[in-house]
Write a protein that binds this DNA or RNA. Structure first.
Lengths: 389, 389
DNA sequence: TTGTAAGCGTTATCAG
DNA sequence: CTGATAACGCTTACAA
């Protein structure tokens, strides 16, 4: 209700001077500045961002498009983005759960004029293409996009390598019959994790048996149900690699209800390393993905694009996850120690970091086509996701 | 880059006509409309929301201020808001993790011109006051505010009653020495849950022993640590009421590491009923809070305020949570059945819903001062938070 | 039914 | 250093 004009009038200066004070865009006499500030604070003035972005054609805001908002993984991504954005004095416009491509694109378009750029997580190919089209008029960073997508910046998690690493670990522990608890069909992460699973089996000389690939959709409930299916298999699998932690938790809950013990009767592993994974009974062996950092990197990538629109697009950052061995895989209590929370203590990694992806193309395409791979080195997660006493 | 003027020129009409077509604000000849739509889609035009909100002084967006973004509780709130907002064609601007009151207010102010209203969760008194001041110039809905706050709309969870109900349940199971695992000092939810704990003990004729009130901060790690403290107490407590599920999980993890069994050696209960609670070993007895619905209601309340600014403020909705009895409290396997996920099956509630709050003031203030209490009836949560097969 | 033109609250350009 | 003033892209009386 109170505009720059009111402030100017009260301070007996022009609106231009008020604007200069607030933006530091040109020198203003000390006296004028004093009067402006006094006037502004008396009137409780704050510039109208809509008007500002209309003239500057910069909104200092960014859009975030997510497929959903369920669970810790997504909220950590937003947290990472939000934190980085706040530091850069950016605002964050979120939108999630789009039923189809049309709705997704509509959401992106509705943001026009409100945002300077977009971070989108689009786990299916059709929509990813559509969003990627927008990148021509608009700075866009894609999170975990399908490998086929090209032409805009991308930040992904090395799902394939992570999955490979867990399964190799299970094989090394002596498990031969290893089931996969899959994510939803068509989901990119789910597909990549399955690819890693199969590849690891192949490399180990084990058969890839379709019967062992159980259906799931990333929810605990689907994990719970899949366990029943797993127990019907003959011979019964000795281990399960669940494509995310939530399903692993549901799966373990079901095994417990059936009177089976983990890992003695069946080993279980997950993916993501959500915060509670280490506190479960038994603590869950899983692949640590730093979702917070994923969000943070996405923001930085976008910010880079905004600052220098002419920089090459098609940059691709890959976050390499880390295998975290706990007790659910039957590795024994060797890592029990990791559970004692101590200040600045990092989760112990009993396992070597996953191998770097093969240099050459594996099948027509390389593992990460067009990847410039800023950071491919395995990093021990340096960022604790919450204060530990 | 493409404006309403470009569309108008190409369609050989005035900008006013284009505007009318897009807003349906006045009749336009079929022929003109056809030309406008063709032109717009050819040019891939979409109205600039900043400009639009400048003229209409309506942004069709709302701000969400959260103390943090950790964990399922917060992400569910955002999910609820986002979903309700999308249905009403509103956009959502989020901001979280403000270090202090000043930063919080700055974030709210920075949204000026961008949003039509604000939903804020402000769990400490000082900041809540500050945000409440904004309500005079601005539609504001507060989530779970301190009881002392008055003068703007509020939506809260009946923390006190929920806590009371769990503790009463523990007493009924025969536990006499019941510890409290507290939330962070100064946090409103934590305080109310403690109040409920103490009141239940009093009502049961049990002593309120400060030694039994363990420090915590809502993180799993603090729960893990608190268990060590609990085990040092003599005599050892027979049960623990953790002020949220994450701490309960950390606590149980610690007990397991110490070789104790839940519930035989110690009963454990939580608060919130996060999605995985039912899949834990043992499944966690807790208080179900429908965070999604909390967000949804907050949006509706705000929308109501926007539609009719002159309606009475100081409306206060209270969501009454439900006690969910599972196995961690030692109630026996009576509810094991609730764990078999079936379509449309609601979690069994072996316990009566918490009693309605006492009608009269309890101690100077009533339980919910100024509450108009639209919905105070206990509701079985009708909304599954995720698809269950 | 359509067009003209005056704003909405800022910033940016240009003279002073 | 400061002040007019013309945009920015859109909506909305008011006229036609």
């Amino acid at each position: 209700v109170v505009t720059i004009r009111d402030v100017a009038r009260r301070a007996r200066v022009s609106t231009a001077t008020v604007s200069r004070v607030f933006n530091g865009t040109a020198r203003v006499s000390a006296e004028a500045e004093r009067r402006v500030r006094a006037s502004a604070s008396r009137l409780d003035y704050w510039p109208n961002s809509a008007a500002r972005s209309l003239t500057t054609s910069r909104s200092h805001a960014l859009g975030v498009l997510l497929p959903d908002l369920f669970g810790e993984f997504f909220s950590e991504i937003i947290r990472g983005i939000d934190h980085a954005a706040r530091t850069a004095r950016f605002q964050v416009l979120v939108s999630s759960s789009h039923a189809d491509t049309a709705e997704l694109v509509a959401a992106a378009r509705a943001m026009r004029g409100r945002i300077d750029g977009l971070i989108a997580m689009v786990p299916d190919c059709g929509s990813a293409d559509a969003v990627c089209q927008l990148a021509r008029q608009f700075p866009v960073v894609l999170l975990n996009p399908p490998a086929t997508i090209d032409g805009c910046r991308k930040v992904s998690v090395a799902n394939f390598e992570g999955a490979q690493a867990v399964v190799h670990h299970l094989v090394r522990l002596g498990h031969r019959r290893i089931a996969l608890l899959q994510g939803p069909p068509g989901n990119v992460d789910a597909d990549e994790r399955r690819r890693g699973y199969r590849e690891a089996l192949r490399e180990s000389g084990l058969p890839v048996d379709p019967q062992l690939e159980l259906a799931g959709d990333f929810t605990e409930a689907s994990g719970y149900q899949a366990a029943a299916a797993a127990l019907r298999l003959r011979p019964r699998p000795q281990a399960v690699f669940a494509a995310n932690d939530y399903m692993a938790i549901g799966f373990m809950g079901s095994l417990r209800d059936a009177g089976l013990r983990v890992p003695q009767d069946m080993a279980v592993t997950g993916f993501d390393d959500i915060a509670i994974a280490r506190y479960l009974s038994p603590p869950l062996t899983t692949v640590h993905v730093d979702a917070y950092q994923l969000g943070e990197r996405a923001f930085r990538s976008l910010a880079g694009l905004l600052d220098a629109p002419r920089t090459r697009r098609r940059e691709h950052e890959v976050l390499v996850p880390t295998l975290v061995v706990r007790r659910s895989c039957g590795a024994g209590p060797a890592n029990a120690e990791a559970l004692r929370p101590r200040r600045r203590r990092i989760v112990a990694h009993a396992e070597a970091p996953p191998p770097a992806p093969p240099p050459g193309p594996a099948l027509g395409n390389g593992v990460h086509p067009g990847a410039s791979v800023s950071k491919r080195r395995t990093r021990i997660p340096s960022l604790r996701r919450r204060l530990e006493p």
